[in-house]
Computed example of a mutant assay.
Amino acid sequence: MTPDRRRLAELTGDLSAAGGVRLVTLGDGVERGIRTLEFRTGSGLAFDVLVDRCMDIGHAEHAGRSFGWRSPTGFRHPGLHENADEDGLSWLRSFSGLVVTAGLDHTLFGGEVPADTYRYPPRRSVRHGLHGRAGNLPARLTGYGERWDGDRCVLWAEGEVRQAAVFAENLRLVRRIEADLGGDEIRLVDTVTNAGFEPAPHMFLYHINLGWPLLDEGARLEADIRETLWQSDSVAEQKADHVTFPGPAPGFVEQVYEHALNPGADGLHRVAVANDRLGMKVTVEWRAAEFPYFFEWLNLRSGNYAVGLEPSTHHVSGDAAAREDGSMIWLGPQESRTYRTTFRVSP
């Protein structure tokens, strides 16, 4: 229990003794130059916000036990990103961390789609890579710190990411991240705006990646699944359990599912990964109306061991299919959409 504001002032001359937010710059290897906000709530919850990577959440732990996935790529500086290489799969060379944002105009696998809405004859089409551009765009950091509301102290950060080109999309993401001093949850609020004056396609997805030691043999998925709408061919080929997870295996081929979830009476979807042996559970909740679709990514490959929870604005069929069936979201000039997501760590 964190002392109240007056008692805390009596006990220490600096709030950082209890927790806080600190801006640092990573200094080595592929991570060199990335501005990072280190959040510590004082409850044992600590996480890093990667300012120069869309303000995504990289490392995350509770009481010294990591739950944000760490891949071999590290948190690669966006200046090293190869957006158009490897037929759009180069996104996988910078894929790591608790939250990796996909969007803002495209998610899922790449491809070529019409660009006629931008009314620029030389740009007849747009070619997208896996999960779009947003996750490798630096943010403009507009503020961070600690704010007292009575005896409640909120740790916060806010920034703006622009995905824009001349004669193309002009999309703005404003991201706010909060955590309470002494608390065990992270609150993420995103607002995406079409800052331009032509309609712009909008797709949005969070790749929420959980790893060891939370993910281990016997850890399990908790979700109110009404129906599994789609699964990758690898599910039938490998038959790995996607509810009670096995340990890592060499050569494992990712298994992907699209599940239809039942929302709670409050309109929220809740999905968790729980590890009873560790005494730890991470729950993610979001508004069903904002992210109506959900994918489970099961990556049991040795050296890449992870499970992904993916709230999404669109079905797994992707960009071209969404345009064809009319489900693509088109943001009008100056139109916005807001997304609210909470991460909670519990026994």
Rank of each mutant, 00 (worst) to 15 (best):
G79H: 11
L309I: 12
P213E: 01
G13R: 14
T341E: 03
L98S: 04
H269M: 07
T338L: 08
A289N: 05
R32N: 12
D276Q: 12
N304I: 00
L80K: 05
R187E: 11
E324Q: 15
R323H: 11
D14F: 06
S94T: 14
L108M: 13
N194K: 02
D216C: 06
A134Q: 05
K281Q: 15
G182P: 09
L181F: 06
P248H: 12
A219P: 03
F197W: 09
G159K: 03
G64S: 08
L45E: 04
H207T: 06
K239D: 12
F294L: 04
H106D: 01
Q255S: 14
A134K: 01
W297V: 04
P138V: 11
V174P: 01
E335N: 10
H128Y: 13
V189K: 04
H81V: 07
R76F: 02
R226S: 14
Y305K: 09
R175E: 10
H314E: 07
A179L: 06
Y257D: 10
R176I: 06
P250Q: 12
E222K: 07
E10L: 15
N275M: 08
A115R: 03
I177H: 03
P3M: 02
D216Q: 12
F167M: 10
D116Y: 06
R70Q: 14
Y144R: 10
Y206H: 15
R53C: 11
H242I: 04
M203H: 06
L215H: 05
